[in-house]
Amino acid sequence: MMGTLVVDILSWVLICAGSFFVITGAVGILRMPDVFSRMHAVSVIDTAGAVLLVLGLGLQAGSLLVVFKLVVVLGLLFFIGPVASHALAQAALQAGIEPKLDQDRRGQPVAGEMGLDNTANKQTNDAGTGSRTQ
């Protein structure tokens, strides 16, 4: 009796937290200014929202097969999410849509890049991003 109560409370917590993240992501899709920043809101749904909801449902599943199916659903979401975001970002950049940037560091030299002096720049050199590759 005690055991099922604990499991029920745990599912409630997980499902409520998952629902919060799902709604947050949807609100983010509405509020964000351009297509690139909206992708970040979508990844909140894809990761935190999905995993918390699925974990909460999984605790209530009667059989092991249902749990396994939930795990497969989760795995599918994880592989779809980043691949779709990446393809979307690339297609949007290709189509000439530029994100509204606050700061553009693309012109700065990357530590370890050919023909560039990587000691000249403090931003990219501070924590040794490229020093391991030398």
Binding site: V22, I29, V35, I45, G49, V54, L57, Q60, V73, L88
Partner: peptide, 30 residues
């Protein structure tokens, strides 16, 4: 833009999966 719509369509798909999962549990048919 069209990419906003594709992004939204993609997350509709994600939400539909979650919706089907939750609805399956709600009606007792996983």
């Amino acid at each position: 833009t069209v990419f906003d719509r594709v992004l939204a369509a993609n997350s509709i798909g994600t939400l539909a999966i979650l919706f089907l999962a939750a609805l399956g549990f709600l009606t007792g048919r996983p």
